[in-house]
Design a protein around this nucleic acid. Structure first.
Length: 798
RNA sequence: GCCGAAGUGGUGGAAUGGCAUACACGUCGGUCUCAAAAACCGAUGAGGGCAACCUCGUAAGGGUUCAACUCCCUUCUUCGGCACCA
C-alpha cells in the first residue's frame, strides 16, 4: 500500500493557502533571498518543462526558508501574446476571456504541485495595472530619445502578420511559427538598446554565477569587433569611401574594393558609365533576394564592376570599385577592401572575375605566390610587399599599420557591433498599446502620464482578417491631440511582449504600487534577484532585454545596481525517448495525470533525482515509480522507531546533514537525494529513533513538502515544518577513530588496512610492510618511495 | 569557420588529482505466500580462474605525476549559439 498522497497533498495545499504560509514582507532586520523562476505564458496547462523549472526553484526556496532567510518567491503570468488572439478567432471569444480562463487553470495546476509562491504578489502582464507601467517606461524612454520611430526594412512574418525583432528571427524563420521571414519597408518603433552596447558587454564579466554558455551567447550576439576604418578616395572626385577591416595588416594586398548594392554612393558611381545598366539590374536582383538566400555561405558570390576607381591611401594605387551581394550594408561601413590572397571570400570573388591578387603575408618557413594559390592564406606570418612594414610579424604590423594610418589621417581605429536597435512595435491586438498620438499639426505626441493607462479597446472585432483589430475601433483610434486639442489619431501598434517581461522582476517587489512601476525602497530591499531559473531558450532575448531595462532604471535613478540577476541557472529540457516533448511528436507526458497516479511529491522527487538540473532529463515512468517507492520506504520508518539510535547511525546522519546542506546550496539535488537514500538504507539496517527520523524528514521536506509536513505532524509537531530550522552537523561525529587506508603498489590497489587515525608514519610503514597481501608484490624489489596521503591512501613505489 | 558545453556499466547518473561506476532503474537469485503482488535480503563493468585472485576498462592517441574520468597537447563524435560580420 502506498501512503495516501492524494489526501495528504490536498490537505497541506489548503493549509498553506489559508495560512498565507509563503507571504513575503520586507524586513530590514532579516537577510532576504529573492528566488525567481521565469514566469510562464498562460497556455492553460503546465508541461513537464514548467514542472522541472518550478520544482528546482521551489526546493531552493524552501531550503532557504528553513535556513532562516526572508524568502520572496513570486509567480505571475506573461499573459500578452499571439496565441490568445488565434484562440479568440478560432473559438469566437475574446483574448481577454481566453487568457483569464487559462490563468485560472494554470494557477490550479501550479498549486497542485505544492509550489511555495506568495500568491498575493501575483501579476499578469495583461492587467492594465501592469501594462500601464509598460507605457510609463516607454514614455520615459521616449523622453530620453531611447524610444524612437524610424522607417526601414524590417523582419516581417507573413503568417503572424507582424514585425519581428532581430532576436526573434531564428535561422531565417519566425521564432514562434518558423514561417520564412520577409523584408518589408515600414515605419516602426525601436528601443535604442545599442546605446547600452558597451555596458551590456562589459558587465557580462560581473556575472560570475551565470553559465558560461549564456555569457558566450550574449557576447556573440552583441558582437564587438575591433579594427580600422580606412578611407579610400575616389580617383576622379573629391569623395571618400570608408571601408572597415579587422585585418589592417593586409592593406597593401587590397586590390579592389566592394560596396554593398544598397550603398548610398553606388548610384553616383555608376551614373553615365558603360556598366550602368548591368549594375542597376544587379542591384534590383539583389534587392528582391531574401536575407536567408543572400546569407547562405555556399552560394556563388556575384557582383558587377561600377566603372569607377578608388585610390588605396597607403600606396596610391588605383583599384577598381565593385558591388557584390556578399557585402552587407548593415555591417561595418557597407564597404570592404578586398584582399583575395588573405580572405577566402575575396579570393573566390577575385578568381571568378579575374581580379588582381598580391601576397602580403608569408607563412613562416614557407613561400606562397598569388598564381599558385588554390585558396586564400588566412593564417599568420611575415609581412612582405608592405613598404616599411616588411619583415614584421603580421600581428605586430596590424597594430603598427593601424596607428600609422590614424596618424596620417587615412584611417581611424574603429569598433563595429553586431547588436541592432530593438524593434518593438507589433501589428497585433493583444499587447500593450504604444502610448503615442499622431497629430497632423503637432506630429508625434506622447500620451500625457496622467492619461495612462491607454487601455486596450475591449470590443475590438476578431475576424482573423484585415490587420490589427485595434485599428477598427473608432473610439480607440480617433482622439484629440493632447497638445493642440485638434483631431488626431492614436497609434494602433502594440508592444512586443518581451517588453512586459523585461522588468516584471521589479514589479514583484511591490506588485500593487500605484505611483510608479515599482516602489524604490521595496526594490532596494529585495533586488537583485539572488537566484533566477529558466530555460536556455531565453539566453539572448529575455535576459539581454532585462539587463538593458535594469541599466535604464539605473540611469533614471530608480535602482542602484547595473545587473538584475545575481545567479542564473538554465535548466535542461525534459525529453521522452531522446526527443523534446511536443504535440506534433505525440510524446507529451501530462504532469496532471502523473500527480494523480503518483502524487506531486513523487513527481518532484523523480524529476530532481533523475539528472542534475542543468542537463537534459530523460522521462522514465519507472523512475517515477521508484520515487514513490522511496517515499513509502521513508513513511514506514515511523512505524518502527526505537528509543535510542546507535552511535553508528548518528555518524551516518551527520555525514548526511553535511553533504545534503552542501548539495542543496549548489543545486546538486540528485546527489542530495542519493545521500538521503543512503541514510534511509542505514536506518533500515540499524533502526532509528524519533530524533534521527525527524532530521531525515526535515532534510527531505524541500523536495517532498506535503509528505514531510504530514510526517512532521505525526511526529507530534504543531507548527509547519517550514517554521523549523535547518540542521547543523556535529564535526566531532564525522571524525572516525579508525580509518581504512588503501594500499597501492605502483599506483594499483593491492590491499587495505584499518589503522587508528593518528598513527605515526613510521609505525604505519612498519605495519604496511608486514602486510601479507603485499609480499608477492614487494618481494625482492627495492622500495623507492613511500607516499602517504593522510587518512586516505598509501602508495608504495618499487 | 568562430565561440560554448559534453562524451563513464544494459539505462539515468556519481566521483574535479588519491579505492572508477555512489544512489537509483533494469535484470537475476533468495525470504515471505497455496500462488501472485507488495515488502525485505543478496548479486550485477568486461574477460580469465575451482578459488585466492589476475588482466583490461571512463570517445581515441600522446604527455605531466608516486597516482589521471579529473590537469596539458592532438584527434574524433554529439549537442547548442553566431556567421558571406570584412
Amino acid at each position: 500500500m502506498h501512503y495516501k498522497f492524494k489526501k495528504i497533498e490536498e490537505k497541506w495545499q489548503k493549509k498553506w493557502l489559508a495560512a498565507h504560509a509563503f507571504r513575503a514582507q520586507a524586513d530590514s532586520t532579516r537577510k532576504k533571498y529573492y528566488l525567481l523562476e521565469m514566469f510562464p505564458y498562460p497556455s492553460g496547462k503546465i508541461h513537464m518543462g514548467h514542472v522541472r523549472n518550478y520544482t528546482i526553484g521551489d526546493v531552493a526556496s524552501r531550503f532557504k526558508m528553513l535556513q532562516g532567510y526572508n524568502v520572496m518567491h513570486p509567480m505571475g503570468f506573461d499573459a500578452f501574446g499571439q496565441p490568445a488572439e488565434n484562440a479568440a478567432i478560432k473559438n469566437k471569444t475574446k483574448p481577454d476571456t481566453w487568457t483569464r480562463k487559462c490563468i485560472k487553470e494554470m494557477e490550479t495546476e501550479l498549486k497542485r504541485m505544492g509550489f511555495s509562491y506568495d500568491w498575493e504578489r501575483e501579476v499578469s502582464t495583461c492587467d492594465s495595472d501592469y501594462y500601464k507601467w509598460n507605457q510609463w517606461i516607454f514614455l520615459k524612454m521616449f523622453e530620453r530619445g531611447l524610444a524612437y520611430k524610424k522607417a526601414s526594412a524590417v523582419n516581417w512574418c507573413p503568417s503572424c502578420s507582424t514585425t519581428l525583432a532581430n532576436e526573434e528571427v531564428v535561422e531565417g524563420g519566425c521564432w514562434r511559427c518558423h514561417t520564412k521571414v520577409e523584408q518589408k519597408d515600414l515605419e516602426q518603433w525601436y528601443l535604442k538598446i545599442t546605446e547600452y552596447k558597451e555596458r551590456l558587454l562589459e558587465d557580462l564579466s560581473q556575472l560570475k554565477e551565470w553559465p558560461q554558455r549564456v555569457l558566450a551567447m550574449q557576447n556573440n550576439w552583441i558582437g564587438k569587433s575591433s579594427g580600422v576604418d580606412i578611407y579610400f578616395r575616389l580617383k576622379d572626385r573629391d569623395r571618400v569611401i570608408p571601408v572597415f577591416t579587422t585585418r589592417a595588416d593586409t592593406i597593401f594586398g587590397a586590390t579592389y574594393i566592394v560596396l554593398a548594392p544598397e550603398h548610398p554612393l553606388v548610384k553616383e558611381l555608376i551614373q553615365g558609365r558603360r556598366q550602368e545598366k548591368e549594375a542597376l539590374e544587379f542591384i534590383d536582383k539583389v534587392a528582391k533576394e531574401s536575407k536567408v538566400v543572400r546569407a547562405s555561405t555556399d552560394i556563388k558570390k556575384e557582383g558587377v564592376f561600377t566603372g569607377s576607381f578608388a585610390v588605396n591611401p597607403v600606396n596610391n594605387e588605383e583599384v577598381p570599385i565593385w558591388i557584390a551581394d556578399y557585402v552587407l550594408m548593415e555591417y561595418g561601413t557597407g564597404a570592404i577592401m578586398a584582399v583575395p590572397t588573405h580572405d577566402q571570400r575575396d579570393f573566390l570573388f577575385a578568381r571568378e572575375h579575374k581580379l588582381a591578387m598580391r601576397v602580403v603575408i608569408q607563412p613562416k618557413g614557407n613561400s606562397i605566390n598569388a598564381e599558385d594559390l588554390s585558396q586564400a592564406y588566412e593564417g599568420d606570418g611575415i609581412q612582405i610587399n608592405s613598404a616599411e612594414f616588411n619583415g614584421l610579424s603580421n600581428l605586430e604590423a596590424k597594430e603598427k599599420i593601424a596607428a600609422w594610418m590614424e596618424k596620417k589621417g587615412i584611417g581611424k581605429i574603429q569598433t563595429h557591433w553586431r547588436l541592432r536597435d530593438w524593434l518593438i512595435s507589433r501589428q497585433r491586438y493583444w499587447g500593450t498599446p504604444i502610448p503615442i498620438i499622431y497629430c497632423s499639426k503637432c506630429g508625434i505626441v506622447p500620451v500625457p502620464y496622467k492619461d495612462l493607462p491607454v487601455e486596450l479597446a475591449k470590443d475590438a472585432p476578431f475576424t482573423g482578417e484585415g490587420g490589427n483589430p485595434l485599428g477598427k475601433v473608432k473610439k480607440f483610434v480617433e482622439v484629440k491631440c493632447p497638445k493642440c486639442k485638434g483631431a488626431a489619431r492614436r497609434e494602433t501598434d502594440t508592444m512586443a511582449t518581451f517588453f512586459d517581461s523585461s522588468w516584471y522582476f521589479l514589479r514583484f517587489c511591490s506588485p500593487k504600487f500605484n505611483d510608479a512601476p515599482f516602489n524604490i525602497g521595496e526594490a532596494k530591499y529585495w533586488m537583485t534577484v539572488d537566484q533566477y531559473i529558466g530555460g536556455i531558450e531565453h539566453a539572448i532575448l529575455h535576459l539581454l532585454y532585462s539587463r538593458f531595462f535594469t541599466k535604464f532604471f539605473q540611469d533614471i535613478g530608480m535602482v542602484d545596481f547595473p545587473e538584475p540577476f545575481q545567479r542564473l541557472l538554465t535548466q535542461g529540457m525534459v525529453l521522452k525517448d531522446g526527443e523534446v516533448m511536443s504535440k506534433s511528436k505525440g510524446n507529451i507526458v501530462d504532469p496532471d495525470s502523473m500527480i494523480k497516479d503518483y502524487g506531486a511529491d513523487a513527481l518532484r522527487l523523480f524529476i530532481l533525482f533523475a539528472a542534475p538540473p542543468e542537463t537534459e532529463l530523460e522521462w522514465e515512468e519507472r523512475g517515477l515509480e521508484g520515487a514513490l517507492k522511496f517515499l513509502n520506504r521513508v513513511w514506514r520508518i515511523q512505524e518502527n522507531l526505537k528509543d535510542k539510535a546507535d552511535a553508528e547511525l548518528l555518524k551516518v546522519l551527520h555525514k548526511t546533514i553535511k553533504k545534503v546542506t552542501e548539495d542543496f546550496g549548489e543545486f546538486k539535488f540528485n546527489t542530495a537525494i542519493a545521500n538521503l537514500m543512503e541514510l534511509t538504507n542505514a536506518i533500515y539496517q540499524l533502526g532509528a529513533d524519533r530524533e534521527v527520523f525527524s532530521k531525515l524528514v526535515i532534510m527531505l521536506s524541500p523536495i517532498a513538502p506535503h509528505f514531510c509536513e504530514e510526517l512532521w505532524e505525526i511526529l507530534g509537531n504543531k507548527q509547519s515544518i517550514f517554521k523549523a530550522s535547518w540542521l547543523e552537523y556535529d564535526p566531532q561525529l564525522l571524525v572516525e577513530e579508525n580509518v581504512e587506508l588503501v594500499i597501492q603498489v605502483n599506483g594499483k590497489v593491492r590491499s587495505k588496512i584499518e589503522v587508528p587515525r593518528d598513527i605515526p608514519e613510521d609505525k604505519l610503514k612498519e605495519l604496511v610492510l608486514k602486510d601479507e597481501k603485499l609480499v608477492p608484490w614487494l618481494e625482492g624489489r627495492p622500495l623507492k618511495k613511500f607516499i602517504l596521503v593522510p587518512q586516505k591512501l598509501i602508495n608504495i613505489v618499487i
